[in-house]
Computed example of a mutant assay.
Amino acid sequence: MVGTRLIAIAHVGVFSATQVFAGCPQGTEAFNTCQIEGRNTEVAVCFDDRNVSYSYGSIGSPPELELSSPVERVDFEPWPGLGRSIYEEVTFYNGDYSYTVGGGFERPFSDEEAQQELRRFGWVEVMHLGEQIAYFECRPETVTYGFGGGLYDLKVAANQSWDQYSLSWVSDLVQPTSSSTLRDTNLETCLSPSEFSLGGLRLGDPLSMLGKLGSPEPVQGSGIPIDRLTLVDMTIDIFEDEIVAMSSELPTWATRSGLKVGLTRGEVIRLLGRVPLGYDPTADSFSIDACSDQQGVRSEWMIDIDFGQDKRVSRITLAMFSP
């Protein structure tokens, strides 16, 4: 199914924004295109001012796989600005699979090297649940790659900035608040208890706050008498008639400051003000305790923020350590 996935990349200089390369539909610009080394297949990553597309298949035939992502959400990783090679990459996601298309060229560092043809390169890496299952290289002479402008400028025009530390893009619309900014207490990072709510429902709220959302059912095999209300976009656990946990995997429910599913890792870090103590900027999850020096925190609360392979929040969970 995935055995063939390839990528193109690398080219000299900067291309005109209106130039169209082979393999890209009319009206779109190529991030890169190429033919795969040792195979009769080709890949094309193309974009316009709204969408970025990936297509792969046999040369001259309809694509075997096509994927697309809006410019605002596409996982584009720009050149970090270091090293002899200039390179960039774009990753597309399809369920448990990801397809990273990258490429670049070797920069000349002397007049003699500048007179020689640039060494171009490109690749595609296919992952399944975080494990590499395929890797292909491009035929260098078929690579097209236009460094400068392009996707980077489109992301910036969409009011996003690249965060090299978290390796993700951050929307200028995401700004920290007094409730979302982390605090340090006894060498530990904590978050204001006012953040421990989703869509207006707060940990510790009575069962009556659920209103007409539905009727909780006993959780089988939990060992303690917990009832669970399962909604389309959230689960709510109740113990002794109060909310003890909430978990959501859709962006419908957000905390007071806007922490929710779908935010990039960099956007979460911006809301928190910094990376929580004990974690690095590319961690797969953050777990943060509530600051317990405020009224209304009757037991230790925690928030778990899990990130998916696309570097965005995949699940957010609020819970008491023990009911």
Rank of each mutant, 00 (worst) to 15 (best):
E267P: 00
D233R: 02
L207K: 13
R202L: 12
G221T: 08
S197Y: 02
P216F: 09
I224T: 14
F196K: 10
R270V: 04
T235D: 07
K212D: 14
L271T: 06
F239S: 08
I269H: 11
D237I: 00
S257L: 12
L203D: 04
R202H: 15
G200H: 04
L231T: 05
L207Q: 12
L210N: 06
E249P: 05
P251N: 14
D233G: 05
K260Y: 03
S247C: 12
E267V: 02
S215P: 09
G258P: 10
E217A: 11
S197I: 06
I269S: 02
L210V: 10
R270A: 03
G262S: 11
E249S: 14
I236A: 01
D227Y: 03
S248G: 10
T264R: 09
D227A: 05
F239V: 04
F196H: 08
G258H: 02
T264P: 01
V261C: 02
G200D: 06
L201E: 04
V232A: 15
T235K: 13
G204Y: 06
R228N: 04
E242L: 05
I269T: 15
D241S: 04
D241N: 12
E267M: 07
G266A: 08
G258R: 00
T252D: 13
A254Y: 00
F196T: 03
L201R: 09
V232P: 01
I243Q: 06
P251F: 14
V261A: 00
S222I: 05
D227I: 04
G211S: 07
I238P: 09
L250K: 13
L207I: 08
K260S: 12
P206V: 10
Q220Y: 14
M234P: 05
E267D: 07
L201D: 04
T230F: 01
L207F: 09
S248L: 10
D237Q: 03
L263M: 01
V232T: 15
S247T: 15
I224C: 06
I224D: 11
P225Q: 13
G199S: 04
P216R: 03
I224R: 08
E249W: 10
P225I: 12
V268E: 10
G262M: 05
L210E: 01
I226V: 15
G223L: 06
Q220E: 10
R256Y: 08
G211M: 06
R270N: 06
L250V: 12
T252G: 03
E217D: 10
T252N: 11
A254L: 06
S208C: 07
K260A: 05
L203K: 11
I269L: 08
F196D: 08
L198S: 06
W253V: 10
G223D: 05
D233E: 10
V268D: 13
